[in-house]
Write a protein that binds this DNA or RNA. Sequence first.
DNA 1: AGCCTCTTGCG
DNA 2: GCAAGAGGC
Length: 444
Amino acid sequence: MSRPDLCWFRRDLRLADQPMLLEVAKEAVGLFVLDPRLTRGSGQARLDYLFSALAALDETLGGRLVVAEGDPARVVPDVARELNVGAVRCTEDFAPYGRARDAAVAAALKAQGRELRPAGSPYAISPGRVRNGSGNPYRVFTPFRRAWSAHGWPRPAQTGADSTRWLAAEVSCQTELPSPRLVREAGEQAAAARWTAFLEGALAGYAQNRDFPAVDGTSRLSAHLKFGALHPRTLLRDIAAADADDTDKDVFVTELAWRDFYADVLSHHPRTAWHNVDRRFDRFAWSDSQEHFAAWQRGETGYPIVDAGMRQLAAEGWMHNRVRMITASFLTKDLHLPWQWGARHFIRLLVDGDLASNSHGWQWTAGTGTDAAPYFRVFNPTAQGKKFDPGGEYIQRWVPQLRDMPGPKAHEPNPRPAGYPPPIVDHAQERAEALLRYEAVKGR
DNA sequence: AGCCTCTTGCG
DNA sequence: GCAAGAGGC
């Protein structure tokens, strides 16, 4: 029997339905390298999800997953040598933000006489492939969305255990997997089950319900997509065939298009992962209050919808999208803190934390991004709360101090119950302050 | 994927 | 008084 290949799964843990990856997996030992910096900074829910996903991948690979910790430039060649593998492949990141790391890995492998080859991306559909009439990438979502749909995308590859033949390779350097403390089911089976449940359930009414954080009205597929347990091409195929309202289907597809749009933008402009797309904001006068930042992180701002969201994030490693926008607006426009502070906090705790969607979502809210909301679009946390959580159920779920405040009162608790803080800033005043600071940079 | 203020039309 | 729409930030 020939030597096995090594397939280095990078950020993406599962094969999804990319034909190339399936081919590779038939002949490969899997390798996942834990980044100690990442695991140290992560929240418990995120780690739980990661370990669950690793366990699911290990099962899929028939127990042939190697998990190691450390610098990939050292670990990947070490494992390759120890297993005496043939080819070394890696799942492609959609974005080039790992280029320096990959170059180091490739160089170390080359010293052994081995080559690092790409093995397809389970991440997104379109990055780098949608261009406008002049052959340039889009910078605005709406025309991107049109072109993205008009382009058409291949159907997913056929998957299934039957088609996969596993090598009986002995893996000697397997790191023991931490026992998964399942917060949420990870892996391809769990993802498929969640998708089916969505198609038969919340898809009806999705266009309306997706904005209400107390309602289970979203697909909750983001973590599965981030880890490659499910491919967006599969979603496109199934949604087209679904017997549902056209508006609901269209709105869901638009969400997938946003995800691809941000992946596309980041792949063309990798520096925007942590830097302003709109360079005028490089001169923006952000504040730097650690006290305000800490209050926001802990969910003690005195604005119920903000606090509920931040507490859900800490507890679950997930936050409803509507509330992500509200909490992000509060950090950048009410506390005037740099969007990067918020983005870093989010990506450390979110189980679905994805660089492109996270950073560009933050830049959208902050007004610094490609196709961003104009800076003067400031969310009013109280009005947003009343509009999208009219019954106050979301507040009551996450802020126990406000459990006795039903309905709209939950968003303006008066009097403040013991243990619930007064607002740390005055929204009307800080809104004006934000617009003032914006005046100083706009048009320059 | 906002908010605020002002105007107008109705009564 | 109020709802609905326009326009500016």
